[in-house]
Design a binder for these strands. Structure first.
Length: 309
DNA sequence: GGTAGACCTGGACGC
DNA sequence: GCGTCCAGGTCTACC
């Protein structure tokens, strides 16, 4: 008999909207079921792994989230699960400040961006999204879970792998050495999540430290920063440039469009990334329907491939 | 500080 | 079925 928990979210929270708000909800071990409107994934807890399904019924703002685990969880594990779910769903964030700066999203209530239960998983997911098309990112994350840990590889597990093994089994290509090194840095304590999650650090400090990590450049750093709740920068990739050209009518070289994007989103200050992201996400949904209706392996695999939508 | 080229993988395409 | 080209961000060497 598994454990059932009730999680009380903020009064504005909507599970399907706030889970299906960023591409990581399509990456293993996360599984969004568009028919059941539920999120299932395996969590690493104190005693071991547990598959947990999250639902919110009826779908209304602030309704309780039901968490159903496939096994009995101890008190300590229940607390750990609440903490990890809280991070994924950003239950401690209040989008009101964002809506004051960019009122376009007040009506829909958009503001939260889905993320991983741990900082390490967010870093690895970001590195697997660099220099590869979205289906490739989906494949890498699926294989990492299939070959190493169904709840997602821990730093220790990645640190123990040989790069060549990682490359051949998980299809990570030249990222092999970088991923093993990331695992080693986190496992050894040389890199601590708490340091990056400290709100007293400046964006510049965090950016500099992130760029010192293997596989993390300007794009990856900006993306990890938004995953940390620091949205003052645009993660500048080809999708951003495409958005600038196609949605905002920007012209000129890539560099020129990047500069124009920076200037365009400057008025949104600390919320630049959210303003940019929800514009782009809305365009994705215009072609594919609401994200909570996407089948992960079909519609969900077409992200960044707008001509295939 | 700016830039060219290498790094991998898988899909598209032509033959 | 095979070869070629392309997309994607980071890293290093070089100017």
């Amino acid at each position: 008999m598994g454990t059932r928990l009730t999680i009380r979210p903020p009064s504005d929270f909507v599970l399907r909207r706030d889970v299906c708000s960023y591409g990581y909800f399509l990456l293993a071990p996360n599984f969004w079921d568009p028919d059941r409107q539920s999120l299932t994934r395996i969590f690493d807890l104190d005693v071991g792994a547990a598959a947990v399904t999250l639902t919110q019924a009826p779908v209304k703002r602030g309704g309780p989230i039901a968490a159903r685990a496939d096994r009995a969880l101890s008190r300590a594990e229940q607390g750990e699960l609440r903490r990890q779910v809280g991070r994924m769903l950003r239950l401690d964030e209040d989008p009101a400040a964002f809506h004051r700066v960019d009122p376009r999203w007040k009506r829909s209530g958009r503001g939260r961006l889905f993320r991983s239960p741990t900082f390490f998983e967010d870093v690895v997911k970001t590195v697997t999204s660099c220099n590869v098309t979205w289906p490739g990112t989906m494949r890498m994350n699926r294989r990492l879970c299939e070959m190493i840990n169904p709840a997602f590889p821990s730093p220790e597990q990645l640190a123990r792998k040989r790069p060549a093994w990682l490359r051949s089994r998980c299809g990570v290509g030249y990222r092999d050495v970088r991923l093993v090194e990331l695992g080693r840095l986190f496992a050894s304590g040389e890199v601590e999540a708490a340091w990056f999650e400290d709100p007293d650090r400046s964006d510049e400090e965090v950016d500099t430290a992130l760029r010192a990590l293997p596989g993390v450049g300007p794009y990856a750093s900006a993306n990890i920063m938004q995953l940390l709740g620091r949205c003052s920068r645009i993660a500048m990739d080809t999708e951003a440039v495409r958005h600038g050209r196609e949605a905002l009518g920007m012209t000129g070289s890539t560099r020129a469009v990047e500069r124009a994007l920076q200037a365009h989103y400057e008025p949104f200050g600390e919320h630049k990334f959210r303003s940019y992201w929800f514009e782009m996400w809305t365009r994705y949904e215009e072609g594919r329907g609401p994200a909570w209706t996407w089948e992960p392996e079909t519609t969900g695999a077409t992200l960044t491939l707008p001509d295939k939508a």
